[in-house]
Simulated assay, not measured.
Amino acid sequence: MKTLTEGEIRALIHLLGDDDIKTAQIARKTLIEARSQAEPFLEEARTSPDPHVRTRVYSILERLRLDELGRRFSRFCEMPSAWIDLEEGAFLIAEAGYPSLNRAHYRTMLDDMAADFRRRTDRSTMGRGRELIEAFNQYFFEDLGFAGNQDGYYDPDNSYINQVLDRRLGIPISLSAVYLLIARRLRIPVVGIGMPGHFLLQYNDSLFIDPFHKGRLLNRGECVQFLMNNGFGFHPAYLSPTPTRFMLVRMLTNLIQIYSTQDPDRADSLTGFRDMLTHSYAKV
């Protein structure tokens, strides 16, 4: 693409407010293609007196930001699956909705939660099975107050880890992610179980934990019954540990479904993130 002059860029920004939607779309496409040149002028146009220009400028800048985040996400996805880190991936996804997210703040929050549980818990309990999980569930769901967001299940904030930590509300997989991140700091052997229709956790190959329902403990038979009752049938893989890469794919899929009607541009960007995770896996 040829280099644009300042005058051409300002003219294109002005055309974003054109009543003819096709003209505005052409201007948008050209400005996105000229991103490095156009970005300073787009930032300036955030305060345009024309509300259409302001709205469309915001949309373009958001697209440019997500593109840059996508490049960082691509580098993350290229790592071997064994090195894919749930915490890093969850923060990258959260940046899609919260660009100024303070990772250090939330990492410290997770560290403090783990340290607090360790202080409160008798050392003898830390080595026991069901008793340990019951103690951790009490701390996580009752003392800290994490819960399934029954009333606002399709709120995108249920899928952003910073918001789950702040609001103590989430959906099964995001609550599972927070639970796992604290459990790993405590060296409690918990894994994610990507069961169709409902994400669970599993402790030490024996107990299944339902994070959306206050850590309700289930046995294998109850999990199989859930699958059968909900029309999924049963396959042993349904109750196998879910690799981190595919936990992140599932988190992204939830957001894509929510944004597909609310914010198609954001849904497209997140679909690109998901594709990076799956395509990188296929190349390994």
Rank of each mutant, 00 (worst) to 15 (best):
M195C: 15
F212D: 00
F208M: 06
D205L: 03
S206F: 09
R216T: 14
Q202D: 09
Q225M: 07
R216M: 13
R187W: 09
N230P: 06
Y238G: 07
L201G: 12
T242V: 13
F234A: 12
L200V: 09
G233E: 11
P243K: 06
D205I: 02
R245V: 00
P241K: 12
L207Q: 12
N204G: 00
N254Q: 02
I209P: 11
R220Q: 15
G192I: 09
R185M: 04
R185W: 02
L239C: 03
R220F: 12
Y203L: 14
C223H: 01
G197T: 06
G221H: 11
L239I: 00
P211I: 08
N229H: 11
G215S: 10
N254S: 04
P189I: 02
H198F: 01
I188D: 09
L207M: 13
A177F: 07
A183K: 04
G233W: 08
L248N: 02
K214M: 13
I209K: 11
E222D: 09
M195K: 04
T242D: 13
L252K: 04
Y179A: 13
L227R: 02
F199L: 08
R245N: 01
I256H: 00
L217I: 14
G194V: 05
M228C: 09
F208Q: 06
P236F: 02
N229F: 05
R185Y: 04
Y203Q: 06
Y238T: 06
F226C: 01
P211K: 10
R187M: 11
I182A: 09
P211A: 11
L227F: 04
L186N: 08
S206R: 14
S260W: 00
T253N: 12
M247S: 13
Y203H: 15
C223E: 00
N254Y: 01
G197K: 05
I256A: 01
R216C: 07
Q257V: 03
Y259P: 02
G197A: 08
V224H: 00
S240N: 12
Q225R: 15
H235L: 14
L227Q: 04
Q257L: 12
F212Y: 15
I258F: 00
M247W: 09
Y238E: 08
M228N: 13
L180C: 14
G231K: 10
F234P: 10
P243R: 05
R184A: 11
H235R: 13
C223K: 03
Y179G: 12
H213A: 03
I209S: 11
H198C: 00
L201W: 10
I182F: 07
F212E: 02
R250P: 04
P189M: 03
P236K: 05
A237P: 07
R187I: 07
E222R: 10
L248H: 04
P243G: 06
F199H: 06
L252W: 03
F234C: 12
Q202H: 08
